[in-house]
């Protein structure tokens, strides 16, 4: 069921579902594209999430009722969108365990498998970036092997370093900037998911709707990539 809900005088939440579901999320992204392409100026910004799209508009430029009608029509148009493969799959190198992945052993203990098996299970799927949030560029990833699902830390860390690759419940994610965090950290990527340097042309590595694959690397390769990233000499590896 599609619902159009007000969020203040300049926002409409278009709710296409209420569950984490690749097909629903694909419709959210299809709707985001359709709104951006076809509704033009009165729409200021669209914000996708798991199952909803927030449409931010200028209420002095278009009456809410008219925008609601147009959004409802577009939502019906995208209702048939299937969850196809992601338009691109970004390969994210990860050095697992040790000081870069302090929770790997504990996750292995909880899952009842050796740490190497946790790495294999974590690096196997193509994840889907459902939405970016929490901090700039933080991807909420769907597709974690249910055998790895485990609760958050009892008390969150005050500092989770940038690049930490972590899991919580059925979710997987990556911390783009150092921040407090309660997710369990399996490893670290040398990539920058968010680069706020003034004038940076590609500040965000990922976009909602992308696919993502974790690629296990040794410490040496991690350090080498980290140096390339710092020197601005690194380009994302993408499978299409």
């Amino acid at each position: 069921m599609i619902r159009l809900l007000p969020q203040g005088e300049g926002g409409i939440t278009v709710e296409l579902g209420t569950a984490v579901d690749p097909a629903v999320n694909a419709r959210v992204h299809a709707l985001a594209g359709a709104v951006t392409r076809r509704l033009g100026a009165p729409v200021l910004e669209v914000v996708p999430s798991y199952a909803s799209l927030l449409v931010i508009f200028d209420p002095l430029a278009i009456p809410r009722a008219r925008l609601v009608r147009r959004l409802a029509a577009l939502a019906r148009e995208v209702a048939g969108t299937a969850a196809g493969p992601p338009r691109r799959v970004v390969r994210v190198p990860v050095c697992y365990g040790g000081e870069l992945g302090p929770d790997l052993e504990e996750v292995a203990r909880r899952a009842g498998v050796p740490p190497a098996e946790v790495v294999a299970l974590h690096a196997a799927p193509v994840y889907r970036v459902y939405l970016l949030g929490f901090t700039p560029g933080f991807p909420y990833l769907g597709g974690l092997d249910p055998r790895l699902a485990c609760p958050r830390l009892d008390s969150p860390r005050l500092r989770t370093p940038a690049g930490s690759v972590a899991i919580a419940g059925p979710q997987a994610g990556i911390y783009p900037v150092e921040s407090p965090g309660g997710w369990r950290v399996l490893g670290r990527t040398p990539l920058r998911l968010f680069d706020p340097a003034p004038g940076a042309s590609r500040p965000f590595l990922l976009a909602a709707g992308d696919g993502l694959r974790f690629v296990p690397v040794e410490r040496e390769a991690f350090d080498e990539t980290a140096r390339a990233v710092a020197a601005g000499a690194w380009r994302p590896e993408v499978e299409r």
Binding site: E15, T18, P48, S49, S52, L54, Y140
Partner: peptide, 11 residues
Amino acid sequence: DVLTDPILPGA
């Protein structure tokens, strides 16, 4: 709890 969805200042 609701399924995480977009929020605006003022919510």
